[in-house]
């Protein structure tokens, strides 16, 4: 799914919810996942003027989960460690986007190259 304008955010969140419901995820974990997704999509719009978001159902042993991948071709992040710190923001937000999203999901991975773009992958396990 491509995210190019802010009106895409709500439909995207609904799609994530559909998938989460399908895996049988509880309401709290659903909410955490969707909130994290919302933060990351917003980042993508804010810093990279949009990008691609991918929703997948994954499983590990008997655990099911949802994997979301957000890829953009934006300016990239020079210092990922700094970007993951609470309260740090290069924009004018609260600086909770990345670290907050990380706290809400089970697995979090970020790859970024300055000038090339950023890819964030998150996984939320059904019971995680």
């Amino acid at each position: 799914m491509s995210i190019l304008k802010e009106q895409d955010v709500v439909p995207f969140r609904n799609r994530v919810k559909e998938y989460a419901v399908k895996t049988g995820m509880g309401i709290v974990n659903q909410t955490k996942l969707i909130t994290a997704a919302s933060e990351l999509v917003r980042n993508m719009l804010l810093y990279a003027k949009g990008g691609i978001a991918l929703i997948e159902v994954v499983s590990r042993g008997r655990e099911n989960g949802i994997r979301l991948t957000f890829a953009d071709k934006g300016p990239g992040i020079a210092d990922i460690k700094l970007a993951l710190k609470d309260g740090y923001s290069s924009g004018k937000s609260l600086g909770l986007g990345l670290p907050g999203a990380k706290r809400l999901v089970s697995e979090f991975d970020i790859q970024s190259q300055v000038g090339k773009g950023t890819t964030v992958t998150i996984i939320k396990w059904k019971n995680g």
Partner: peptide, 14 residues
């Protein structure tokens, strides 16, 4: 506020 929303906000740090 929904319970799930409250829990998420706390976890988010907000």
């Amino acid at each position: 506020m929904q319970p799930a929303v409250a829990i998420t906000l706390i976890e988010l740090g907000l």
